Computed example of a mutant assay.
Amino acid sequence: MKFFKILSLFAMPFVMAQQGTRFVYQATLTPDSTNVEKKTELAYLDTDGKKSVFYAENAMKRDSLMERMRTTQNFNREQMQSLRSNLQFTIEKDLTNQSLIYKSRIGRDNYSYSETPTFDWKILPETVKIGDYQTQKAETKFGGRTWYAWFTQEIPLQDGPYKFSGLPGLIVKVQDERGDYSFDLMQTKKIAEIYQPLNRGQVIALPKSKYVEMEKKMQKDPASFFSAQRSSGGGRGPAGGGGGNRPGMDPKQIQEFQKRMEAEIKSKNNPIELK
C-alpha cells in the first residue's frame, strides 16, 4: 500500500481555522474498466467545521478561466478542454446532520439531489501513521463497493472526500477494495472562505431516484436526450438552447458532438457508485 507525505500548514494539535480549511486530496480513478490506465487529479475539501464543499481542482481553474474569457471576450476551447475533470460534480455537506447535496450536469442542464447516506462503519484495530497523522482503519459498504478508510482523531472533523463522513476524525485516505478509486490527503492549508463552484444556469433539484433515472436515459441515448432538453428549452447546448437565445450548430457539428458524447459515456463505464 502506498502512503503519501502530507504537507501541513498547521501546528499540532490541529485547530480549525476561523475562516476555513482546505484539505487537498489526490484522487486516483479508473473510470474505464477496459483501460487499466488510472487517472490522477487533485480535489479539494473546503470546510469551516459546520459545512464543507468537495470539488475538483480543475473546476476552480475552469471557473477562473471562464470569468477571464468573459472579460476578454476571447474563448479558447483548447484551454477549457485541458481542464476537464473525471470528478464532474460538487458535494455540499451539512456536517451537523451528515446530509449532503450532490450537484452535477446531465446533458445541458444542472441537477442536484439531497441525500443522507448511511455509512455502517466497522472500526478495525489496525493503525498506521500516514504523513504526520496517526490513523486507524475502518471498513464500510457503499454504492456497491467495499471501502477502506484511514481516519485520524488528531483532526476532530467527521468528514472526508467524496460523500464519506461519520468517522470520529477526518478521513486521511479512503479506497475501494478493487483499487478502482482512492483519495489520499496531500496537504492542508488555511483559506479565507469556502469556495463555491460556479453554476452556469439554474440548478434543478430532483429526488435521487429521478436523477439516476435521467442519467441512465442520457447514457442510453444521448442524441434523443439532448434533443428532448433542447425542445424543452433547457441549457445551452451545441444545437442551440437557452430558449433559442443562441444560434444552433449545423447538422454535421451536431453529429460530431453526438459521437463525442457517446465515446465519453462509453469511457466512463466504471462509476464510483455501482448501484
Rank of each mutant, 00 (worst) to 15 (best):
E262K: 08
E273N: 07
F225W: 04
Q19W: 12
L124T: 05
D250C: 11
Q81W: 14
L170N: 01
N269L: 03
A59M: 00
A239D: 03
Y113L: 02
T30L: 07
A138H: 09
K189V: 13
G131L: 08
M12T: 15
Q219T: 11
L45K: 00
E154D: 09
L185Y: 05
Y113G: 06
Y113V: 06
R22F: 00
T21D: 01
A56L: 02
D176S: 06
V36Q: 13
D63V: 07
P117H: 05
G201S: 13
I6H: 01
E78K: 08
K252D: 13
Q258T: 11
K259N: 12
D63P: 01
Y133S: 00
S33D: 03
N110L: 03
D221A: 09
P168Y: 08
T28W: 05
D32W: 08
V203A: 00
K216E: 12
M186I: 10
I171F: 01
M66K: 03
F183V: 01
K50Y: 09
Q136S: 12
L206Y: 02
E213Q: 06
S85C: 10
G143D: 02
R105V: 05
P13C: 02
G169S: 03
V15W: 13
I91G: 09
F4K: 04
V53M: 10
D32C: 11
Q202Y: 15
F89N: 06
S114R: 04
A205Y: 14
K266W: 11
Q258D: 15
K259G: 00
E264H: 15
I155W: 04
G160W: 04
T47L: 10
T146Q: 06
Q79D: 02
K275G: 07
N97R: 04
K163F: 05
K129C: 11
Q255S: 13
Y133A: 02
A59V: 03
L167W: 01
R200L: 13
P271I: 10
I171N: 11
E115S: 04
N86D: 09
M186P: 07
R77V: 03
P197Q: 06
S231R: 14
T146W: 08
P161L: 05
G107R: 02
L65S: 02
F257H: 03
T47M: 09
F257S: 02
R260W: 13
E193Q: 10
G240L: 01
G179K: 04
A205W: 14
D63Y: 03
K189F: 10
A11E: 14
D184F: 04
K208L: 05
N110E: 13
K39T: 12
R246V: 14
E92T: 01
R230V: 08
M1G: 07
G144Q: 00
F89M: 03
P125G: 02
K220L: 07
K141G: 12
N245Q: 12
A228M: 03
Q255F: 15
M1V: 14
N110Y: 11
F226E: 07
I6G: 08
Y25M: 10
Q175V: 09
F4M: 14
E57H: 00
T71M: 13
I254S: 10
I123T: 04
D159E: 01
T118Q: 13
K217R: 15
A149F: 07
E193Y: 09
I171W: 00
I91V: 09
K210G: 11
